[in-house]
Amino acid sequence: MTDTSTQRTGDFKNALLRAGLYAMLILFALYYLMPLFVMLVTSLKSLDEIRTGSLLGLPRDVDFSAWGKAWSGACTGVQCEGLRPYFWNSVLIAVPAVLISTFLGAMNGYVISQWHFKGSNMIFALLLFGCFIPFQVILLPMAIMLGKMKIAGTISGLIFVHVIYGLGFTTLFFRNYYITIPVELVKAAKVDGAGFFRIFWSIFVPLSAPIVVVTVIWQFTQIWNDFLFGVSFSQAGTQPITVALNNIVNSTTGVKEYNVDMAAAIIAALPTLLVYVVAGKYFIRGLTAGSVKG
């Protein structure tokens, strides 16, 4: 009798503990979701409703006009074209920069992991340290250099900057992945007469799908979300979306349109959020690979 009753109180205590655990987890989930929820409902309200209603309240009448304005009418200073041109600027910057830095990272990683030569590890260490520098330390000379190269304030200039300062991470990703491929494989291929590029294309490239996905996602997220390079090295027509968003939110002309600000913020976040939702597993792998080196 006593046995079952203590067991029953034990079960009860356990159930209570589990309930408390789930309650806490859900509470935390609400905390992380709250800003997204607030952004979404605010973007769907009219300005009147924003002033009279509650931050957390659902919109009484769903109003999409803020989205239209954020996309093609909001002012980023003197120009009032919305986010659309800047969205395309970001695409034009991110796509080539991601492809080039990923390709170079793959080649570098291939050399460093499989074709040791005197000093190759030193070069890797130099590249790696470049991931950690605060970019403030290169802003001034880079601004001068871009001017000398006649690409200051252009999309090409921003692509160039993102490629250079992305190399450390892309090389790290590929090096850590390729190092797990046995050296014997390369040796055997060499005996069979295959050369440097032949081995890369027919052995390494076909094995690279997972690390390419990790690298592309990492680079895309970094470049799309970049603000420092965007604000330092762009001019009126070439600004990326993060800079335009900040300008819309902080433009002082006219009434403060919170609904437009929130719609613009969601538009700017959408591409990386989409990548995260579709390929979260690879996103997390990139994050942890970037911080815990193999």
Binding site: T221, A268, Y276
Partner: peptide
């Protein structure tokens, strides 16, 4: 819990 990490600090 992790989605904010995919956002830009500006957002």
């Amino acid at each position: 819990y992790l989605y904010p990490m995919a956002l830009s600090f500006i957002v």
